[in-house]
Each structure stands twice: as structure tokens, then as C-alpha cells.
Design a protein around this nucleic acid. Structure first.
Lengths: 132, 132
DNA sequence: CATGCTGTACGAAGTCATTCGTTGAGGGGC
DNA sequence: GCCCCTCAACGAATGACTTCGTACAGCATG
């Protein structure tokens, strides 16, 4: 397995993303942790989780501490970076490259709390000032 | 092929999305149109485009007028609806269901013109009034 | 030590998306 | 009539993702 820069790690697949979600929340976790968080309740097998995490390790998406019998996994890519990545993917592919079109859609169709609206407004003000 | 409600058409794949993009732009198009718009310049084969469009027709993503020798295709799903769909997918899968988190990321990392910022602010004002 | 539990490794199978080669139909021009 | 061009249909090959069965190692408990 060749080492890769974080910047060109492959885009996580759907199942991988769910696993990364667990690792981001917990900081780290074993296969059992992930299996219980994601697969156990709907009958998914333990080895399925294991295999996925092995594949992810092969791709460099997670790192592994095998000093314990139950190996401990940790995400290599940050949540922020991954969010950004998916975001620009979708902006390119379905919003013709226009992030603000996406923002308009997102604000329009989904609910935001007053608190969040305030936060967005503040960011907007800052952007306004900066674009002077 | 069974008919489906628009609301539960399958999510377009990456290649399908590119084709839908062409159809949304043009209103309609033949396989040749799509091939020239997307595949010709990078050496993609004509039958690749054809097959994809046949598959899409099978899934109900496009409709087809075969009264001409060169069948004319048209998107069944609207661009708006598809954008919304991808958006809520990504909100659920990588933004923990928080659309405003996504908005903050999008505004922060991508550029928006003054005109667009103004538009966003107007929407924000309207949301503020409505959430009273 | 035998048994059972918990773990990793590995390979096989199934599904889906994508790409392409081949075939045959339908016309138009010579 | 014959050749050539454009087109749709179809099947095959490939590769990625996902799921699972099986095998085997380590360790604790009786």
C-alpha cells in the first residue's frame, strides 16, 4: 500500500461515510464499536463492518492501531475537509458551479433555527465587508 | 418496465447526471447531441452515450420520442427537484441533517458575487419575518 | 487441555455503473 | 440495385462497492 497525501485520498463511498461518521463522533473506535453503532440494529453482519474498515484502511481513509487485540481505528480525513469536498462536488455537478444557488436552495427548502439564521447573517455581513 | 411516480425515481448516477445536465440545458436532445456535448471531446464512444440513455429510459429518468429515426430524449425529473434531492442527501449524510451548517460551509469556502449575496440576504430577511 | 468467545484475514458472490464491440435496420446517393 | 452512413439494440467485459461465509489465532474459564 502506497502512502498518499490527504488531499488526494479517494472520496469515501456511502458506507464508508457512515463509518467515518461514527469515528468522527467517537474520536476512534473498534470494528465492534462501528458495527454496533451502524449495523447491529438492522442485522448487518460483523464481518461486513470489518471488511469495509479493512478496505478503508487500504485506501488510507482510516489509520489503525493494532497494538491491542481489537484494532482501534481513527479517521485520517477530517469531517470539515470531507464536508467541503462533498460540497464542492455537488456544486460542480448539479449547481453549475454556483455555490450561492446552492445556498438559496438550501435556505429555501430546509428549516433553520433563528440562532442559525443569525449566524448566517453575521457571516454574510463579514463577506460583504470583505468584498468591498 | 413499470411506470413510477416522479417522487421515487432512482437517484441519477454521476454519468446520468451529466446527461441530464445536457437535456436540461437544451430542453431535449438526441443521443448524438449528448454524445457531442459530453463524450466526443474526450474520445468517449457513441454507444456509451446510447447505452446510458437507454438505461436511463429504463429507469424512467428520461422519456423518449421515437417518432423520428433519431429518438429525441427529454428529462423526466426537473433540475430543481434533482438539486433539492442531492442537497438533502448531502445534508443528511455529511452535515448531520443541518442545512444551515451546509450553508455556512458553502458561503465560507466558495465565492459569491455581490448580486448573489444580496439575493441571499433578501431570502434571509423573508425567512426571518416568517419565523416570527 | 478442551471449549467457547472475540478477534482478524481472506476470498467468493452479487449488484451496479460504465464502456465498448457487434449486429442489423433504414434510408439516401450513385 | 448496391454501397455507405446513421441509428438503435444487445450482450459482454470490467471495475467498484457491498455483503457474507469460512478459516484461523489468541485467550480465558472450566
Amino acid at each position: 500500500m502506497t502512502t498518499r497525501r490527504v488531499s488526494d485520498l479517494p472520496k469515501p463511498t456511502e458506507a464508508e461515510l457512515a463509518i467515518l461518521g461514527v469515528l468522527w463522533d467517537r474520536g476512534s473506535g473498534t470494528v465492534r464499536d462501528v458495527h454496533e453503532a451502524l449495523y447491529a440494529h438492522d442485522g448487518g453482519g460483523y464481518t461486513t463492518a470489518l471488511k469495509l474498515m479493512q478496505v478503508m484502511h487500504g485506501k488510507g481513509l482510516v489509520e489503525r492501531d493494532d497494538s491491542q487485540r481489537a484494532h482501534v481505528f481513527r479517521a485520517v480525513v477530517s469531517k470539515e475537509r470531507t464536508q467541503k469536498r462533498f460540497l464542492s462536488d455537488i456544486v460542480d455537478r448539479v449547481f453549475d458551479g454556483s455555490a450561492s444557488q446552492l445556498v438559496l436552495h438550501a435556505l429555501g427548502s430546509q428549516s433553520a433555527s433563528r440562532e442559525e439564521l443569525k449566524e448566517i447573517r453575521q457571516l454574510l455581513n463579514r463577506l460583504d465587508r470583505e468584498s468591498k
